[in-house]
Each structure stands twice: as C-alpha cells, then as structure tokens.
Simulated scan of single mutants.
Amino acid sequence: MDIKAATDSDYKYIVERDRHIAEALVKNKINEHEIFILWESNEEIGWMRFGYFWDNTPFMNMLWIDEEYRGQGHGKKVVLYWEELMRKKGFSSVMTSTQSDEEAQHFYRKLGYKDAGCLMQENAPLELIFTKNIV
C-alpha cells in the first residue's frame, strides 16, 4: 500500500465518498496537504483526513478503508505515517474521535490512544475523544 497526499486529481474521488466534510472545504484540505489517499495496485482504497483541534493539536477527522481492504494493516500504517509526520512538524500529541457504537474505538486504543472524554450530541451516539502522546 502507498500513502500519498491528495491532489486536485483526487477531488472527485473524495467528494463522491467522504460524506462527513462540506464539499466547499475539500479543495482547501487538498491544498493544505490535510488529506492522504491510500493506494493499492494503482487503485484508491481509502483516505485519511485531518485538521487541528483548537487550531493547535492535530486531529484525525476521518479514516476510511474500503471494506475489502480492511483488516490488512492499512489503517494502522496510515495512522502511524500521520503520527510521524506530525511529530516531525513538532507536535507532541494528536487526537481523534469515533462514535461509541463504532468498532473504531478498539482500533485506536490498540494503537495507544487514550480515552480523553466525550461529546454528547442530540439524537446521536456518544462521540468518544482520544488523545495520544507522540514524543
């Protein structure tokens, strides 16, 4: 698997699949190198998108691996890649979240993420917040 920063040529792939971001923000995320595309045999198999919590802490907003490629270590590889990139940029910790009814919470804990709180939204499952020290 290869991990590459998204480019303008990935725009269509992203907006057709990532339903958790306003389409108007995608170009800016691409320009800021805040979306990575995962490739397997010259085919896009997923993406990872991040931003900054409180404008100062890297926050992984979205990690998606297509169903047929899950369970093969691709998610772990892209998360570790991102953490190393953030470490090189001088950050000492990163964050992410997932809903309490999603299996992803177990994935993040296996990667060393610690529960740091939660967010309650009306008519939605509890959003679990995770942090990880990367120094």
Rank of each mutant, 00 (worst) to 15 (best):
M1I: 02
D2S: 06
I3K: 01
K4M: 10
A5N: 13
T7D: 04
D8S: 08
S9H: 04
D10F: 01
Y11N: 03
K12H: 14
Y13F: 15
Y13W: 06
I14C: 04
I14K: 05
V15Y: 06
E16V: 03
E16C: 09
I21S: 03
A24D: 12
A24F: 02
A24M: 05
K29G: 00
K29Q: 12
E32F: 09
E32N: 15
E32A: 13
E34D: 04
W39G: 00
S41A: 07
G46I: 07
W47F: 14
W47V: 00
R49V: 11
D55E: 15
N56F: 11
T57Q: 05
P58S: 11
F59R: 01
F59M: 07
M60T: 12
M60Q: 10
M62H: 13
L63F: 05
W64N: 10
W64R: 11
I65T: 07
E68L: 03
E68V: 05
Y69W: 07
Y69G: 00
G73N: 06
K76E: 14
K77T: 06
V78F: 04
V78T: 06
V79S: 00
L80R: 11
L80T: 13
E84D: 15
G90Y: 08
F91K: 03
V94G: 03
T96A: 05
T96S: 11
S97M: 09
T98Q: 04
Q99D: 13
S100G: 15
D101R: 06
E102F: 08
E103W: 02
E103R: 09
A104W: 05
A104S: 15
Q105A: 11
Q105F: 03
R109S: 10
R109L: 04
Y113K: 09
K114V: 10
K114I: 13
D115V: 10
G117H: 02
G117P: 05
C118W: 02
M120A: 14
Q121G: 09
N123H: 15
N123K: 15
L126M: 13
E127R: 10
E127M: 10
L128K: 07
I129S: 01
K132V: 10
K132P: 10
I134F: 04
I134M: 08
V135N: 14
